[in-house]
């Protein structure tokens, strides 16, 4: 074998080994690299009250309730059948709205309500002009969310 071809084979073997190592590392990271836990994951693996975690999912339609103090809101984060009630006191980002993604940081209280101290809004991958969004009914948007 010519030295050039020998180097080519060595480089290819090295590439395969690197990619293999990368995938092994990723498989190990799989659970730890997730930014948040979803309601369904929490239903399968409950977290004890008081432990700080991030909860992520969709804000359920018609679930946002404002408390009388004006800064506290209650809403429900859902993922399929699983639902988690959340309470947050503070200013939520502009994009925080119903039927849209959210990531909440906080902990469960003893009654199973998630007390959030920080709320982040998730944006989805859809970009469109305002006129088009008006034409689109909410059902269509919901449909697309479910398909995803």
């Amino acid at each position: 074998m010519k030295p050039k071809n020998q180097r080519l084979v060595l480089a290819l073997l090295a590439l395969v080994a690197i990619i293999g190592a990368g995938f092994l590392a990723l498989a190990g990271l799989r659970d730890n690299a997730a930014l948040f836990r979803t309601p369904a994951e929490l239903a399968a693996n409950p977290v004890e009250p008081g432990r700080d975690i991030r909860l992520g999912g969709m804000v359920a339609a018609n679930s946002i309730r404002e408390a009388s103090d004006g800064v506290t809101i209650d809403f429900i984060v859902e993922e399929g059948e699983a639902r988690v009630p959340v309470r947050f006191t503070g200013i939520a980002p502009d994009l925080f709205r119903e039927s849209s993604g959210v990531v909440a940081e906080g902990a469960f209280d003893r009654r199973g309500t998630f007390i959030a101290h920080t709320i982040l809004a998730k944006h989805d991958e859809n970009y469109m002009p305002p006129q088009m969004a008006d034409m689109e009914t909410r059902d269509e948007r919901l449909q697309r969310t479910l398909e995803r």
Partner: peptide, 27 residues
């Protein structure tokens, strides 16, 4: 693949090889 493998704050891919979820007026 970071946005596909792990749940993340960053949204998933908008532009694929054949399709785009960004409207043509913005694309």
């Amino acid at each position: 693949y970071s946005v596909t493998w792990w749940n993340s704050l960053h949204q998933p891919q908008s532009i694929g090889l054949t399709s785009s979820s960004i409207d043509a007026a913005l694309l």
